[in-house]
Design a protein around this nucleic acid. Structure first.
Length: 544
RNA sequence: GGCCUUGUGGUCAAGCGGUUAAGACGGCGCCCUCUCACGGCGCAAUCCCGGGUUCGAUUCCCGGCAAGGUCACCA
């Protein structure tokens, strides 16, 4: 067989010698330890928590080591293309503080451009042609029907499915047959001629999983589709080589195709990058756990976190605690250190799939938000409300001075310890609602209606906004005492039967009447913020 | 089904030959307290199973089992 002539027939034209590409995309002149990592999404525009998970790992590894993180778009499948997707990906990741050094729509060093695979067609073809020339690739004329019939046949015989060994019909087509097919204008793909033996097990060192054993690939995988566009596998080998990726961190769903990639790198004569396969985020679904799914789990979408108003850093911190189990301990010790200072390690990444725990995220989120300044909190809420808030919520920001007092109170600014009432922006906006809108409904009271009315009336009679917190509370106690309620909590707990209730019950009545809620921050301050007129009107309203 | 990966409390997990088997989230209880939140203290709860190796296995080996992934001209 004259491979050279066949290659010329299949991929006619003058291609540069392979050395040309080696020179055009030279090794990066980075320090020895510097890692080059990448994110290589398909342009569907849908970027989810799993992507973010891997993105953080890639970003940390690159930037901790003084290396490069770049963005490559794997657009070899037209069906996956969505307009504006690349910008959406960049934007979504930027929200979580992931920035690329170079890549599609990023700019940066143009040496390794283009970053869209469709624009790299020539390179793939040059190397496909080379593989044909050396007999490591061949045209396959099998139709989709033939292939699926083959699959059925193999399944029926309980054999391994795929295009390999004796099942690789087009592998040993004679020169005459090939040219006859070509002359007949039959469509074809280019397949790799695999030299692997599935009986051979290879030890492989994965940066995350440690030592693993892989079975040699013996599948004659497609490298160029019938439209001349490469498959993922082929493009991966070529791009990660010429973009000089040093470490490929990707989801463990790729582990199964690692043997293909290994063979491809060898066939192309490329030095392989290191790989780290990270586990996927799981979700408990009844009895079993499964991968987070786009369909069923809204929390998979990054959009979910923006809509709910999770503080981006909180999501990042949670991802980091799952990514590197020692992160949490470090963060506890270094609460104010920049996250960038954490010594992130690929080897510390978890080997087994972690269940996504919203409770944990919420806890982290509370902590993160409680550390914000009033001004930062206000800014954060405002941005959220402008995009996701209701019309009335947007008016909370009209009176900045009032909002500041509200936030300071709810966050416990100035107190010994910060309060942690806010988990997300949407929840926080709901929490502060009663400062800006009258209660639409009231929590349950423990005291009956008649007693309540009498207590509220008495309170109103003595209430003065000029009172300080202490004087105010003395008055509450006086009202309590006058109605047969204990004024001292210790005394009440010792012998509750002596009283109708305690000052706590009286405070609750006032609290629910003015705010609608049984649980709020300090009532005196709330009344100060609301102002006398509003307090009196609300209590009068509750009296009805 | 083949192949690969993983298996420590409900969750995330440290430990990797001898430990009272860390810590965090969640749960429960107590304290603080005008409620809540915060904070403090405490409680319950774990080494998948079976064989080895060993004076001794959660830790090493083998075999099960279970879970997950993957078997496209999708990435």
């Amino acid at each position: 067989m004259n491979y050279k002539a066949l290659a010329e027939r299949l991929l006619p034209g003058e291609y540069p010698p392979l050395s040309y590409y080696e020179e055009k995309y030279p090794p990066r002149g980075l320090p020895e330890k510097a890692e080059v990592t990448r994110l290589a999404p398909s342009p569907t525009g849908f970027i989810h928590l799993g992507n973010l998970f891997a993105a953080i790992a890639n970003e940390r590894v690159a930037h901790r080591s003084g290396g490069i993180l770049y963005l490559r778009i794997e657009d070899t499948d037209l069906k996956r293309k969505v307009e504006g997707a690349v910008e959406a990906v960049i934007h979504a990741l930027h929200y979580f503080d992931i920035t690329f050094d170079e890549g599609a729509e990023i700019g940066g060093d143009e040496t390794y451009a283009p970053w869209y695979q469709r624009q790299r067609a020539e390179i793939y073809r040059a190397f496909a042609k080379h593989l044909i020339e050396i007999g490591r690739a061949y045209p396959c004329f099998c139709t989709e029907e033939e292939l699926s019939r083959l699959r059925e046949e193999q399944t029926a015989k309980k054999e391994i499915t795929g295009y390999y060994g004796k099942y690789a019909k087009c592998r040993d087509l004679s020169e005459e047959e090939i040219y006859a097919n070509l002359d007949a204008g039959k469509p074809y793909v280019i397949r790799l001629r695999s030299l692997g033996d599935p009986e051979h097990k290879i030890k492989f060192r994965d940066a995350v999983k440690g030592e693993i054993t892989v079975t040699e690939n013996d599948q004659d995988v497609v490298i160029l589709k019938s439209d001349g566009i490469p498959t993922y596998h082929f493009a991966h080998a070529i791009d990660d080589h010429f973009m000089r990726t040093t470490l490929v961190i990707r989801g463990e769903e790729w582990l199964a195709s690692l043997p293909i990639h290994l063979e491809l790198f060898d066939a192309l004569g490329f030095c392989r990058p290191r790989y780290g396969h990270n586990c996927s985020l799981m979700k408990q679904d009844g009895e079993t756990r499964r991968k987070l799914s786009k369909r069923k789990d809204p929390e998979l979408s990054l959009e979910f976190y923006r809509k709910e108003g999770y503080y981006p850093r909180a999501v990042k911190v949670y991802m980091l605690t799952l990514l590197n189990s020692n992160f949490e301990e470090w963060y506890l010790k270094n609460p104010s250190a920049p996250l960038e200072e954490f010594p992130f390690k690929v080897e510390k990444m978890g080997k087994s799939g972690a269940l996504f725990d919203l409770d944990k995220l919420n806890d982290i989120s509370k902590n993160e938000l409680s550390n914000l300044s009033v001004a930062d909190m206000g800014a954060f809420l405002k941005v959220w409300a402008e995009e996701f808030g209701t019309e009335s919520q947007r008016h909370y920001f009209d009176d900045e001075e009032k909002l500041s007092r509200v936030l300071a109170l709810c966050m416990g600014v100035g107190g010994k310890k910060r309060r942690k009432d806010f988990t997300t922006a949407s929840q926080a906006m709901g929490f502060i609602r009663f400062f800006f809108e009258r209660p639409a409904e009231y929590d349950e009271y423990r005291v009956d209606r008649q007693e309540r009315a009498s207590i509220l009336t008495d309170f109103l009679a003595s209430y003065s906004p000029a009172d300080d917190a202490q004087a105010w509370f003395e008055k509450v106690k006086t009202v309590a005492g006058a109605h047969g309620f204990a004024t001292d909590m210790k005394e009440y707990k010792l012998s509750p039967e002596k009283f109708k209730g305690s000052v706590a019950d009286v405070a609750e009545i006032l609290r629910v009447a003015t705010t609608g809620r049984a649980n709020t921050p300090d009532l005196w301050t709330i009344m100060q913020i609301l102002g006398e007129k509003e307090v009196r009107e609300r209590i009068a309203e509750a009296l009805k």
